[in-house]
C-alpha cells in the first residue's frame, strides 16, 4: 500500500490480487443480494484508492481494508433497517429433495445457518474464517472491544456447529 501511495500502480494490482477473493466472499456472504455485494465490494476498493494519500501503516492493511468493508456494510444495514437480521422464508428452506449428493446438502445447510446468523456474528465469523483475523483484529476492524468480538465469534461458532450437527 505504501508503494501504491507513492505512485506505484503495480503495487495496487498485487494488493488487489491478494485480497480480492476473500473480500468479495466476505461481502457476498454478509449480504443476500449479489449485485449489492458487488457494488459494496467495488466501493470498498474505491475508498482504498481514494484514501491512499492518507494511508499510514498503523495497522495491518487487511484490518484497514475490512474496517472499510465493515463500515460500508453497516451503512447498508442502516439503510435497510434490521431486515437483514432475520432470514426470510425463502432462505429458510434450502433443503431440496432433488439433491442427491449429501455434501451439497450439507453445504447448503451450512450456508443457510451462516446466513441465519445476526450480521455482527456472521461478520465476526467471516472475518475469522475467511480473512483469518484474530479476535483483536476483528475488534479493531469492527470498531468494538475484544470481549464483544470474542462473544460474537463464540455465538456464531456455536450456532453453526449446531447446524452442522443436525
Amino acid at each position: 500500500m505504501l508503494a501504491y501511495r507513492d505512485g506505484d500502480a503495480g503495487a495496487f494490482e498485487k494488493l488487489y490480487a491478494r485480497h480480492r477473493g476473500a473480500l468479495y466472499r466476505f461481502v457476498l456472504r454478509s449480504l443476500k443480494d449479489r449485485s449489492v455485494a458487488e457494488e459494496l465490494f467495488q466501493e470498498a476498493w474505491i475508498r482504498v484508492i481514494e484514501a491512499r494519500e492518507r494511508y499510514a501503516p498503523s495497522a495491518r492493511f487487511t484490518t484497514w481494508l475490512y474496517t472499510i468493508a465493515h463500515n460500508l456494510l453497516v451503512d447498508h444495514w442502516r439503510r435497510k433497517g434490521l431486515a437483514l437480521v432475520e432470514l426470510t422464508d425463502e432462505h429458510a428452506s434450502p433443503d431440496n429433495p432433488a439433491r442427491q449428493v449429501e455434501a451439497r446438502q450439507t453445504a447448503a445447510r451450512f450456508l443457510q445457518a451462516l446466513e441465519a446468523l445476526p450480521p455482527a456474528q456472521r461478520e465476526a465469523f467471516l472475518l475469522h474464517e475467511e480473512v483469518g483475523l484474530s479476535v483483536a483484529e476483528i475488534a479493531a476492524a469492527t470498531g468494538t472491544n475484544e470481549e464483544a468480538a470474542k462473544s460474537r465469534l463464540r455465538y456464531a461458532l456455536a450456532k453453526l456447529k449446531a447446524a452442522v450437527d443436525e
Binding site: A9, Y16, G21, E38, Q42, W45, I49
Partner: peptide
C-alpha cells in the same frame, strides 16, 4: 464446512473497473 462452500470470485469486469480506477 466453510471451506466446502463455493469459492466465489469477483467478476472480471469488476476487477478491470477497480484496477482502471487505481491506475
Amino acid at each position: 464446512r466453510y471451506r466446502g462452500l463455493p469459492r466465489e470470485e469477483p467478476p472480471r469486469a469488476l476487477d478491470e473497473a477497480i484496477l482502471a480506477a487505481s491506475r
